Computed example of a mutant assay.
Amino acid sequence: MTATTRTRLTPEERREQLLELGLELFAGHTIEEISIDRLSEEAGVSRGLLYHYFGSKQGFHEAVIQRAADDLVAQTAPPEGDDPIAQLLASLAAYVDYVIANHAGYRSLVRAAAGGNDAVRGIYERARAEMIDRTFETAGAETFIQDTPLTRLAVRGWVAFVEDAVLTWCDDPTGVSRDQLVQLVTDALPAIVATLA
């Protein structure tokens, strides 16, 4: 009989481990499907320890959603460069890949933001606002989009279009390649902005 050795983690390391496990589960499941029992079993900790770090199941779900939103914003950051359309294309390609890799979790985040509690809606709206802001802040963006209340409204509508198009494509990609999808959502923004001129 061999004894199992347990690694003692600092509170910060343990909390980080729990969030990472939650994020892994979130990639393939809805937030409601992430079981505290399953998570505590995989992490090798008691349910009580999860509640110690996050206060409640809802607190844990919100922390996982916040981490997922932070990851989305980080992974879709446009690369350095002078061509704003190339940066937009790269950012949207990263977004499509993120949604593909985290489809169930991302869909549940969008649904939870639409009808969920205020905390989840706030996390979602902050991430969305950050991505909208950087559309205007990308190097050279002013060459095709001016930062005005009207263009901000248009960009917000475009973001909703991108989100819905990508989620719909993930459900049924028949006849449309990933690259065609990325090009479609990229080309839509300059086309929308051109109608405002």
Rank of each mutant, 00 (worst) to 15 (best):
M1Y: 08
T4K: 12
R8V: 15
E16P: 01
L18C: 00
E20L: 13
G22R: 10
F26Q: 02
A27L: 13
H29A: 14
T30A: 07
I31T: 08
E33L: 00
I34A: 00
L39R: 01
S40T: 09
G44T: 07
G44F: 04
V45Y: 01
S46Y: 02
L49N: 06
L50V: 15
L50D: 05
H52W: 08
F54S: 09
K57D: 10
K57M: 08
G59H: 04
H61D: 01
Q66T: 15
R67N: 05
A69Y: 06
D71Q: 12
P78E: 08
E80W: 00
G81Q: 02
I85E: 02
Y98D: 04
Y98T: 07
V99L: 03
I100W: 03
N102L: 05
A113M: 11
A114H: 13
G115I: 09
D118L: 15
A119M: 00
A129Q: 14
E130P: 05
A141C: 11
A141F: 14
A141G: 06
F144R: 00
I145D: 04
Q146I: 12
P149E: 07
P149N: 08
R152W: 10
A154I: 10
A154W: 08
R156S: 11
G157F: 09
W158E: 04
V159D: 09
V159E: 14
V159M: 15
V159L: 15
V162S: 07
V162L: 07
E163Y: 05
L167R: 13
T168W: 09
D172Y: 07
V176I: 15
L181T: 02
V182R: 14
Q183A: 14
A188S: 05
L189D: 06
P190C: 10
P190W: 08
P190A: 10
V193F: 03
A194R: 15
A194S: 14
T195A: 14
A197G: 13
